[in-house]
Every structure is written in structure tokens, then in C-alpha cells.
Design a binder for these strands. Structure first.
Length: 520
DNA sequence: TCGGCTACCACTTTTGAACTGC
DNA sequence: AGCAGTTCAAAAGTGGTAGCCG
């Protein structure tokens, strides 16, 4: 599986470092079920280009492992649901003065649809067409390496949704499908932007963060882990593991146990019997109860083999690390400016929508994905595919088209170029960059460097401006003062679209395919 | 009939404005 | 007047569940 594509990946329980592989390595061959894994490409541009030396440590990895062993499930709702455990990383090895953009995407883990049957996940058929691929850009982006390395980088505000037409910028997923989050670190180039030919970036994949999306929890073990570890679910914590709240709600003096709980406790308490029975009968579904007991719950019914046994086999080392540097001018992004994703995102005050300018054909962010998807999406989701790249008037018609930005390609057989849709909660309005002509290796995002004013707020943040109780960079309360200016002003993208942003402009330079922050 | 999805519920944490004291 | 700390209400985030839908 994955590590087979990347030779000599080392798992050091934190950041893994792969052997360097020549850039000529055919990237298309580095594809796998969770998307292509790209080996580090040696940098040749001096110390400022050493993005391959960046190390990323997954925060609360042990917790992630607990969930992973049980088969992580993530709730997706129409309104969007946060991930738990939340995706937090500790970054090191950055150039303190270089500016980076950190972003996350979530790619399909395979091309199957799953169902939870007999206490394990089974393949239930072919995956549904992939949702429009979206990127979640960390709210602090762009920021200096010093900023990112100072504290934990938290993506806890990332939300997952099953609403195909989600207007809030949440990452769109299909229910009952397996997914793999990926972290991308993009370096701003010498023009105080990225998207140009010198843009470098790297991708980090922590396999313990893979999950199956659900609309309601299937595995009670996951439910219990969430309740035990998520502060917001404290209300569901009962003494000695009993669902006291449920019984309290229903005015009963005895604990009420959910269907899943009954099912799983039954299996758990009688697992030895069931297991023996299964061993005698050879019934795979009965055998699965043993798999549950041993913490192996994800299964791949293709072979009636526990999914995680095969799946996890490919998960060590837990981090696959690959970097890529664009040198070929033909690879760099062709940016075109389009209308905002939404002129006035309903109820979203500070969310901002970015999208990749073109099909990001590198394994990291783009491999266009799923021809089937193209044929089955709502029409409005595909309008943008036909829209002309580059500057153009903003109209309501094209507004809806902004929704269509497909994901990366997890499987080599999909080869339709579909640009990416990137989102960030960092900005208060929307910007859109038109899909350009497909590049062999365009960089991942169009978001670029902030203006000088903006930058002033980033590197020199006094530690006191951060929450003393939390050292997590999350662009939230502890940084509200720092980014106060952003909340009340307007960004404009010259030639096509504008976004609100204080005193700065988000300028897309069509001539050099790069984006720039400029002072307003 | 059944599995999946949605809306709603009660509860908890988080957030930010208002207030107070120095 | 300005700052730091506290208080408190509103907002947001949880899993459970009834009911709807295909």
C-alpha cells in the first residue's frame, strides 16, 4: 500500500523522514488508496528552500491510535461537524522567517462504501462519487515559520459535512466512506506569494487519523471514546460507564442502553462463546467479534478480513512524508480570478473561501478525481468547470458554480482534471480563482502572502497575546486581538473578485500566476 | 422492512461583552 | 483613562433519539 510507494520511510513516532528521491520520479506512480504519496524532492535553493526538513508531530497521537484501533468514525452533518480528536500538529524545522501556509485536505481512503455489520465495518459496495474536494486553510495562514513552530497548530475548527451544496466551506464527504486527512505545508515564494514556479510544499499523512464518515455512530466503542475524551460530551459521561444521562432524561432509575450498546455489550460479554462458535462454524461474521475484542474493528469485506489488519499493515510507519518543489515553469499555477464563492455567506462571519486556481496535478493537491463524480453531480456543481478562467464579471449564475472543485485523485484510473476548492476560516468573505489549464504540477493553493501590515501582526506576536491556558495556534480567541484588523476591511482581487479584509488586498497577478497581498 | 439521515433535545464548553477594581 | 481580572449570558459543540424517507 502506501509505504510501498515510498521507500525507506522511517517512523520515529513523530515526524518521519523519507529517503530523498529524485524529482524525476514519476509522480503518477506514487498513487495509492489515499492518494499519491510523493517522496521528498531535494531542494536546491539553499536554506530558505529546505521545506523537506520540516518535521511534523501529530498531537495526541496516542488518542488517535486509540480511535484508530477501534475504527475511527467522524460524524458528518448538514451543518458541519468538527472532527474529534481534532487535528493538531507540532511543527519544527521551518525557517523562522519564511512564511508558510498550512492546509488540510481529506481524500478518500479507498473506493468502497462501508456498512457496519456484525460489529465490524464491511465493504458495502462501490464508493459514491467523490464530493467536491475542498481544502481547509489554517486561519493563521500565511504566517512565519516562527509563528507555526511557537505553538501547536490546531485545525480543530475544521468541519465535515455531507451537504453536497455546503456554502460554509466545510469539507464535503460521503457518509459511510473511508477518508484520510492530509496536512500540506506550502511555502510562500520569493515574491511574497505562492503559486509561482518556485513554490515548495510538503505533505504529511498520519495514518492513524484515517476515519469512516458516518451520520450517527455505529461502533459503540467509538462513542465511548468520544464521550470520554471530548469535553463537549461531558454531559454524556455517566459514573462507571453507565449512561446515566440517558436514564435521567427518560426519568428512569436504571440506565438505558442504546441499541448499539446492547449489541456490542452482548458481543463483548459473550465474545468467547461467539468466537468459539465462529471458529467451529467458520462463519466470518461470528469471528468478527474476536476482532472487535482485540480492537480490530475496521474490516474489509472484500475478503472478509478485518479491514484494519490489512489497512494497518500499511500504516507503519504512521507518518508518510513527502515534499515537492516546483521548478518547472510549466508546472506553476495559472491563476485566474473569478467571483467570490458567495457574496455573503449566510451566517458565516469570518469564513473565507479559497480555491486552487487550477487543477493541481501534483499528487499533493490535485490529482483530479473521479470521472464518475463528474457525471453525477448537481449541474450547478459543474458550471465552474466550463467557466472561463481568468478575470470576469461576478454574477449570481456563476456563484453557484463555485461549488465544483473536485478532490484529488486517490486512484490512478481517474484522470479528469478538476480544480481544487480551498477554504479557510481566516477571512470574512469569499474569493475565487478560476480553474486554469491543467498543469503537470501546479502548487496547491492560491492564497498568498499577506501585506506588510498583515505581516506585522504575525511574527512578533507577544506571547501574552496567546491564551496562557493553551499553547495551541488556532486562530481563535487567543489571536483575536492580533487579527482584529482583518474583521472589518475588504480584500479585493484585482480583475474579478473581492473579499473583505482589513486594509489589504488579495491580488491575483494573472501575468505571473501568483497571488500577492498588497497594502490597500 | 430497514438502513441512513435529519431535526431536535439537554447538557457542557467556549466565547466575548459587561462589569469591577486597581 | 487604561489595564487586568471576574462574571455571566449567548453561542457553539456534544451524543442520543424519534421520526422521516427512499
Amino acid at each position: 500500500m502506501l509505504q510501498e510507494k515510498v521507500p525507506a520511510v522511517r517512523d520515529d513516532q513523530s515526524a518521519a523522514v523519507t529517503d530523498l528521491i529524485p524529482e524525476q520520479t514519476p509522480l503518477a506512480q506514487s498513487t495509492g488508496p489515499i492518494g499519491p504519496i510523493v517522496p521528498i524532492v531535494p531542494s536546491t535553493s539553499g536554506p530558505d528552500q529546505n521545506i523537506e526538513h520540516i518535521k511534523v508531530v501529530l498531537h495526541e497521537r496516542e488518542l488517535w491510535k486509540k480511535f484508530n484501533e477501534a475504527g475511527t468514525e467522524m460524524i458528518i452533518t448538514k451543518a458541519g461537524r468538527r472532527m474529534f480528536p481534532s487535528y493538531k500538529v507540532k511543527v519544527s524545522g521551518m525557517n523562522p522567517k519564511t512564511k508558510y501556509i498550512l492546509l488540510i485536505d481529506i481524500v478518500p481512503g479507498d473506493d468502497h462504501r462501508y456498512k457496519f455489520c456484525d460489529n465490524k465495518w464491511m465493504v458495502a459496495g462501490k464508493a459514491e462519487p467523490a464530493m467536491p474536494g475542498r481544502l481547509y486553510v489554517h486561519p493563521d495562514s500565511p504566517a512565519t515559520g516562527a509563528h507555526w513552530m511557537r505553538q501547536l497548530v490546531s485545525f480543530q475548527k475544521l468541519k465535515l459535512t455531507n451537504n453536497h451544496l455546503d456554502p460554509f466551506g466545510h469539507i464535503i464527504l460521503n457518509s459511510m466512506h473511508k477518508y484520510q486527512p492530509r496536512l500540506h505545508i506550502v511555502k510562500a515564494d520569493e515574491n511574497n506569494a505562492f503559486g509561482s514556479k518556485n513554490t515548495a510544499y510538503c505533505t504529511h499523512v498520519f495514518h492513524e487519523t484515517a476515519f469512516i464518515s458516518v451520520t450517527s455512530y455505529q461502533n459503540h466503542k467509538i462513542t465511548q471514546l468520544k464521550i470520554e475524551n471530548n469535553p463537549f460530551a461531558k454531559g454524556f459521561r455517566g459514573s462507571e460507564g453507565e449512561d446515566l444521562r440517558v436514564s435521567r432524561l427518560q426519568g428512569k432509575e436504571y440506565p438505558v442502553i442504546s441499541k448499539n450498546m446492547v449489541r456490542q455489550r452482548l458481543i463483548s460479554s459473550h465474545g468467547h462463546l461467539v468466537g468459539k462458535l465462529g471458529a467451529l462454524t467458520g462463519h466470518p461474521q461470528v469471528l468478527s467479534s474476536y476482532q472487535y475484542e482485540t480492537g480490530v474493528s475496521l474490516s474489509n469485506s472484500d475478503s472478509q478480513e478485518p479491514m484494519s489488519s490489512r489497512y494497518q499493515q500499511s500504516r507503519e510507519p504512521s507518518l508518510l512524508y513527502h515534499c515537492f518543489k516546483h521548478r518547472d515553469a510549466a508546472r506553476h499555477l495559472e491563476l485566474g480570478c473569478k467571483r467570490p464563492y458567495l457574496e455573503a455567506p449566510p451566517t458565516v462571519s469570518d469564513e473565507h473561501y479559497f480555491r486552487a486556481a487550477s487543477s493541481f496535478d501534483s499528487p499533493i493537491l490535485s490529482h483530479p478525481y473521479c470521472t464518475e463524480a463528474l457525471g453525477s453531480q448537481e449541474p450547478c456543481m459543474f458550471n465552474s468547470m466550463e467557466a472561463e478562467p481568468g478575470p470576469g464579471p461576478i454574477d449570481a449564475e456563476n456563484l453557484s458554480s463555485c461549488n465544483m472543485w473536485a478532490s484529488m485523485q486517490p486512484y490512478p484510473r481517474y484522470n479528469v482534471d478538476v480544480p481544487y476548492q480551498t477554504f479557510t476560516s481566516h477571512y470574512s468573505d469569499t474569493t475565487t480563482v478560476a480553474p486554469g489549464v491543467a498543469h503537470p504540477h501546479p502548487p496547491p493553493s492560491v492564497m498568498s502572502q499577506a501585506s506588510a501590515d498583515f505581516q506585522r501582526g504575525l511574527p512578533g506576536i507577544p506571547s501574552s497575546s496567546c491564551s496562557p491556558s493553551s499553547s495551541v495556534i488556532q486562530g481563535s480567541r487567543d489571536r483575536s486581538a492580533l487579527f482584529l484588523k482583518k474583521q472589518s476591511s475588504t480584500y479585493s482581487i484585482q480583475g474579478s473578485a473581492s473579499i473583505r479584509y482589513p486594509t489589504h488586498q488579495y491580488q491575483v497577478d494573472l501575468s505571473n500566476s501568483a497571488c500577492h497581498w498588497i497594502d490597500n
